[in-house]
């Protein structure tokens, strides 16, 4: 995975050296051309996993941006609607991801998504505590996170 990425960068630099211009645009162009070259030899050298994973990470970024926008709109509605009729609560969420960087990523994504804010992780890395600003059905929220972000993180990083 990382090796193929390094080869990709190396090929981009080679492209710049052959072209004789090391501008930023040319470097990106070289990167695209060398990734196209790596894509062509995916059957022979087994680079298809690299591309699958790249797509998954790009998908994760777009999912994140979409959820961020939705969350901002929802918070705006909660702030502006008259009366204090929201139901905040602290809920626990049992984690299936277990390595520290996956938990960090999940917690950060949860904080910037609709109505949820991660408060703390238990010492044994098994439970994540979340503060929700307005929640009706706790089980539905847990299911949402498990099928949305957590599954995507597991697909993209493993």
């Amino acid at each position: 995975m990382n090796k193929i990425f390094l080869i990709n960068v190396l090929l981009a630099f080679t492209w710049c050296a052959v072209q004789g211009s090391f501008t930023f645009i040319n470097l990106i162009f070289g990167f695209l051309i060398s990734s196209a070259a790596l894509w062509l030899i995916r059957e022979q050298f087994g680079t298809s996993k690299y591309f699958n994973r790249t797509w998954l990470i790009i998908g994760l970024i777009f999912l994140f941006l979409k959820e961020l926008f939705l969350s901002v709109v929802r918070v705006a509605w909660l702030v502006l609607k008259p009366g204090q009729s929201y139901k905040p609560s602290f809920i626990s969420y049992p984690l299936t991801v277990d390595s520290p960087h996956e938990i960090t990523l999940l917690a950060n994504l949860i904080t910037l998504t609709p109505g949820t804010l991660s408060v703390d992780v238990s010492d044994d890395n098994k439970t994540l505590y979340i503060h929700c600003i307005d929640v009706e059905d706790v089980e539905a929220l847990r299911k949402d996170i498990r099928d949305g972000f957590e599954r995507k993180i597991l697909e993209a990083l493993r």
């Binding site: 139901k87 905040p88 703390d120 706790v138």
Partner: peptide, 9 residues
């Protein structure tokens, strides 16, 4: 807040 419905923590 006193209106907090549930506190798992």
């Amino acid at each position: 807040w006193s209106g907090t419905v549930r506190d798992d923590l």
